[in-house]
Computed example of a mutant assay.
Amino acid sequence: MQWLLDPFMVSFVRRALCAGMLVSVLCGLVGTWVVVRGMAFMSEAISHGMLPGVAVAYLASANLIVGAAASAVVMILGVSWVSKNSRLSEDTGIGLLFVGMLALGVVIVSRARSFAVDLTAFLFGDVLSATWSDLVWLTLAVFAATAVSVVAYRPFVALVFDERKAHTLGLHPRLAHLALLALVVLAVVASFRIVGTLLVFGLLVAPSATAALFGRSIVATMGMAMLLGWSATALGLIVSWNADTAAGATIAGLAVLQFFVAILIRAAISRLRTAGPPAAAPVR
């Protein structure tokens, strides 16, 4: 049992646990809407599209979070502009801007050799370096995401299941869609400092996708996603400590592993139900 408790005897691991659990709550709330709305590709593009803003903010000695948020907003506006002014689908615009923003970020980074270490932290995060200010910021982000989800719950549900009906009922589906995009930006920007842009997508989608396999309602899916995120965080930190692996990558990897394990379990349950009980032998 010592290997199980030893990691949490250290203060920075306890802070990492708190940070990971807050990220799990935030990503559970937002990720559920992302999964049921089918916005996973857009979320991934936003997480990668922040690189130019972060790079510019770093070179200008400005706030990285402000730079990341500005870049994410540019990404969203660009996708909307391409979709509106061409006959191409939204996915095409997302793909083009995804590559373009990422390429622009790498070009900017290549002009500053001292950025290499910080780029690694940006891509993969460093949950073990979480500070008390990070925890405060994440807590505020969780409260904001919760407030938006509660206030806009009906418009979000209507948008997810029937956009035309939402318009008929006067629930403003376009405004609801923008609010969902704002939640995605909030979750990604708040979390990238902890788990990095390449890994935040895993925590944003994997626990919610796993929960969606079993959850019978949106609220239940959110709650289950949070619990799965917590378990991935705690187990990931334990594995990382004992196996000497990257903490953020281990947490995100376990979150994805949970999804595939859940699929196998669900498939096994489905086969058992289909097979049914063995037929009774005829009585002679």
Rank of each mutant, 00 (worst) to 15 (best):
V136I: 13
G276T: 10
D244K: 05
L159T: 00
G229I: 03
T233I: 04
V127E: 15
M101K: 09
V195C: 13
S191V: 07
A116L: 15
T32S: 04
I238Y: 00
V189T: 05
D6T: 08
G95D: 09
I108M: 11
W230K: 00
A268H: 13
A121W: 14
V10D: 05
E44I: 11
V205C: 03
V150W: 12
L254K: 04
N242D: 05
S89W: 01
Q2M: 07
V54L: 02
L138E: 12
T168F: 06
C27W: 08
M39T: 10
E44C: 07
A281V: 11
L198K: 08
R193E: 10
G125F: 10
V74H: 06
V157N: 08
A211Y: 08
A247L: 02
L237K: 09
W230S: 00
S11L: 09
C18N: 12
L128H: 09
R113H: 14
Q258V: 10
L59A: 12
S43L: 11
A268E: 02
A209C: 01
S191G: 05
L178Q: 15
L5H: 14
E90H: 13
G276I: 07
A19W: 09
R87I: 10
A243R: 04
T92E: 10
I108V: 12
T221P: 00
L237H: 04
T221F: 09
L96H: 10
T197S: 12
R216N: 05
A255K: 14
G236S: 01
P278E: 05
G196M: 06
F201M: 00
D162G: 04
V239Y: 11
A145W: 05
A179D: 03
A152V: 11
R216Y: 04
L96D: 02
R14W: 12
A268Y: 06
I94E: 09
T92C: 11
A206P: 02
T131I: 01
S11V: 15
G100N: 14
L4R: 02
L123P: 04
V30C: 02
L4Y: 00
T168E: 06
S83D: 10
L64M: 01
V189C: 08
W230L: 08
V151F: 12
F156M: 00
S86I: 04
L235E: 01
A141C: 06
M101G: 14
A55P: 01
S86P: 04
A249R: 03
M224R: 01
T139S: 15
C18P: 12
L88Q: 15
I65F: 15
S231H: 00
T245S: 10
T120L: 14
W132F: 13
A246I: 05
V189S: 01
W132I: 14
L204W: 03
A40Q: 15
F260E: 01
W137A: 14
L228Y: 03
F214R: 02
L128C: 04
L140G: 09
A275Y: 08
T197I: 07
Y153I: 01
H177I: 03
V189P: 12
S129K: 11
A176S: 07
G31V: 07
S71I: 07
H48P: 07
A19S: 05
V74W: 07
A158L: 08
T32R: 01
T139D: 11
T120N: 15
T274Q: 14
E163K: 02
F41G: 08
V23G: 04
T210F: 06
L123S: 02
V256M: 14
L138F: 08
V82I: 14
L26V: 04
V261W: 14
M101F: 13
T168L: 11
L59Y: 12
G31W: 11
